[in-house]
Simulated scan of single mutants.
Amino acid sequence: MLGVRGHIVKWAPQLEVLAHPAVGAFWTHNGWNSTLESICAGVPMICMPCFTDQFVNARYVTHVWTVGVQLENGLERKTIEEVIRRLIEDEEGEEIRNRVEDFKEKANFSMRSGGSSYETLESLISCISSS
């Protein structure tokens, strides 16, 4: 019964959706923007890259940062269920959720005054303004 436990739409405000506390995971192609938005929202990822840089981003998410899992072996219902259960129910999922929450805090700190992203942008603005 679609609509009771989920709803599929053509477009949604991704940042608002990711910020909602009911979101337990984000199924993503791992484009750079989507990957960063998921990290900034503290939401673990189900990675299913399609082309180009998405494969590298998904590899970082799953094997380096370990804030998501790769959906492999096709789109069978059982496979999808197993991946979702790994993230939502298993001890591994709890570790992933804790790690992505830590990444969220670091990302948000970097954008505040004194943070690396904030200071780098300020430096760029200063450089452009002085020309």
Rank of each mutant, 00 (worst) to 15 (best):
L2M: 06
G3I: 07
R5C: 06
R5Y: 08
H7W: 06
H7P: 00
H7S: 02
K10Q: 13
W11R: 04
A12Y: 13
A12S: 15
P13D: 10
L15R: 06
L15N: 03
E16G: 06
E16A: 10
E16P: 03
V17F: 05
L18Q: 02
A19Y: 00
A19M: 03
A19L: 01
A19D: 03
H20P: 05
P21L: 08
P21I: 13
P21G: 07
G24Q: 12
G24T: 14
A25E: 01
F26K: 08
F26Q: 06
W27G: 06
W27C: 05
H29R: 02
N30M: 05
G31L: 04
N33P: 02
N33G: 10
S34M: 11
S34N: 12
T35L: 08
L36D: 10
E37G: 01
S38R: 03
S38D: 06
I39C: 02
A41H: 01
A41Q: 05
G42A: 04
G42H: 04
V43D: 00
P44Q: 05
C50R: 12
C50W: 08
C50T: 14
C50M: 14
F51C: 02
F51Y: 13
F51V: 11
D53F: 08
Q54C: 10
F55D: 07
F55A: 08
V56K: 15
N57F: 05
N57D: 14
N57H: 11
R59L: 04
R59M: 08
R59N: 10
Y60P: 03
V61S: 05
H63P: 06
V64D: 03
V64G: 00
T66C: 09
T66A: 09
T66D: 15
V67D: 11
G68K: 01
G68E: 01
V69H: 07
V69G: 08
N73L: 02
G74Y: 14
R77Q: 14
R77I: 09
K78H: 12
T79H: 02
V83T: 12
I84H: 06
R85D: 15
R86V: 10
R86I: 11
L87H: 04
L87K: 03
L87M: 07
I88W: 14
I88P: 00
E89W: 10
D90A: 15
D90E: 15
E91L: 12
E92C: 03
E92T: 04
E92F: 04
G93S: 04
G93W: 04
E94G: 11
E94H: 06
E95Q: 15
E95R: 15
E95F: 15
E95D: 14
I96H: 13
I96Q: 13
I96D: 12
N98S: 13
V100N: 11
V100M: 09
V100A: 08
V100S: 05
V100P: 07
E101R: 15
K104F: 00
E105G: 04
K106Y: 01
K106A: 01
A107F: 04
N108Q: 15
N108S: 10
F109T: 09
F109P: 00
M111A: 14
M111C: 11
G114A: 06
G114I: 01
G114Q: 03
S116V: 03
S117H: 09
S117E: 13
E119L: 00
E119P: 01
E119Y: 01
E119D: 09
T120W: 07
T120Y: 10
L121S: 06
L121E: 10
E122Y: 02
S123M: 07
S123G: 12
I125W: 05
I125L: 13
C127G: 00
S129T: 00
S130V: 05
S130K: 08
